Simulated scan of single mutants.
Amino acid sequence: METILSIHQLTKFYGKNKAVDQVSFKIEKGHVYGILGPNGSGKSTTLGMILNVVNPSSGSFSWFNGNLNTHDALKKIGAIIEHPNFYPNMSAIENLELVTKIKCLTHPNYQEKLELVGLWDRKNDAFKTYSLGMKQRLAIASALLNNPEILILDEPTNGLDPQGIHQIRAIIQKIAAQGTTILLASHLLDEVEKICSHVIILRNGKMIYDGSVDAMNASHGYFEVAAENSEKLEAFANQNEAFETVIKLPNNLYKLILNKPMEADTLNEMAFKNDLVLSHLVKRKESLEESFLNLTKNEAQHA
């Protein structure tokens, strides 16, 4: 597997404030990576450093297995790390032609890129007439003009309405399906879960998770249960080593978090053998949001 980007203990101070704290991870070719974290977690600063916009305080990074310096690597990278910034009175085509001249690109396929982002029929309209979502889509088309090996996006759906968010996500999935590696920063769990195969989670500048989205969410799940005798049910659950945690919910429900695999019929049989009749029994999978909250909670406890 080709390594597109390798980051080693990258750190950035702004005065005494450590915005990014010894972050290390790798981006492998052909995957969609999300850098996930709340605002102020260091996502944009990390992207700024690898794109030579922000100078690192310490640490290092290398592009394309270390075979290219950053200046040459940038020719193989497409990136949007700020709000779309085009000339308002120029059309989409005219703005893309200007980008082509500035970047010294040869033979860009404007039609292909504008069709990909759904703007070919608006190619001759002035940029100022575009909605925010259309402006963002034109920015993506612009970032694709050099047929990059990796596309980097900072909060690509920020400020968009639900329709605009859906359109951007669909475009990112199309680009990924064509084999382009993608790295996007987002504070939206839903965005990462729907688009990304891998996730890097930052909190207060520190990396607290680096792995696949599936692995992050690979808990054994939990049961939601209820019985007429709630006290007996709670005692039964607390004495059973299969349950990592027992949480009392409203309406006499209990959440039994599993620490090993178990099916609902097995639990029902075990309860029956302990003279417990379950009036409610549902097995659920932990959501990405719950996994994220558990990760950040554990990190806060160890801080």
Score class of each variant (00 low, 15 high):
Ser58Pro: 08
Asn109Cys: 08
Pro88Gly: 05
Lys248Thr: 13
Ile27Tyr: 00
Ser91Arg: 02
Ile77Asn: 03
Ile93Glu: 08
Leu183Asp: 01
Met262Gln: 10
Ala92Asp: 07
Ile140Asn: 00
Tyr14Ala: 12
Asp121Glu: 14
Gln239Cys: 11
Phe61Met: 03
Asn124Ile: 06
Asn39Lys: 09
Ile172Ala: 01
Lys194Ser: 14
Leu278Cys: 01
His198Gln: 14
His198Asn: 14
Asn147Met: 11
Ser212Ala: 10
Val225Cys: 07
Thr46Ser: 08
Cys104Asp: 15
Thr157Leu: 12
Gln9Arg: 15
Gly66Ile: 00
Leu68Tyr: 06
His8Tyr: 11
His71Asp: 13
Phe243Asp: 03
Glu155Gly: 08
Asn67Trp: 03
Asn65Met: 06
Leu160Asn: 04
Ser24Cys: 13
Glu94Lys: 13
Ile35Trp: 04
Gly15Phe: 13
Glu82Trp: 01
Val117Ser: 00
Thr245Met: 08
Asp214Arg: 12
Asn146Glu: 12
Glu155Arg: 08
Ile200Met: 11
Ile150Asn: 02
Ala218His: 09
Gln9Ile: 10
Glu149Gly: 11
Asp265Ser: 15
Phe61Pro: 01
Glu112Pro: 02
Gly179Ala: 01
Thr70Gly: 07
Pro84Ile: 01
Pro250Trp: 05
Thr45Ala: 10
Phe236His: 06
Ile140Arg: 02
Leu293Trp: 08
Phe13Cys: 11
Gly15Asn: 11
Lys76Met: 11
Lys297Pro: 12
Gln301Ile: 14
Ala218Gln: 12
Ser58Cys: 11
Leu145Ala: 10
Ile50Lys: 01
Met216Gly: 03
Leu98Ser: 09
Val199Pro: 01
Ala177Phe: 04
Arg169Met: 04
Asn89Met: 10
Ser279Tyr: 05
Lys285Cys: 10
Ile172Asp: 01
Asp210Lys: 03
Asn229Ile: 04
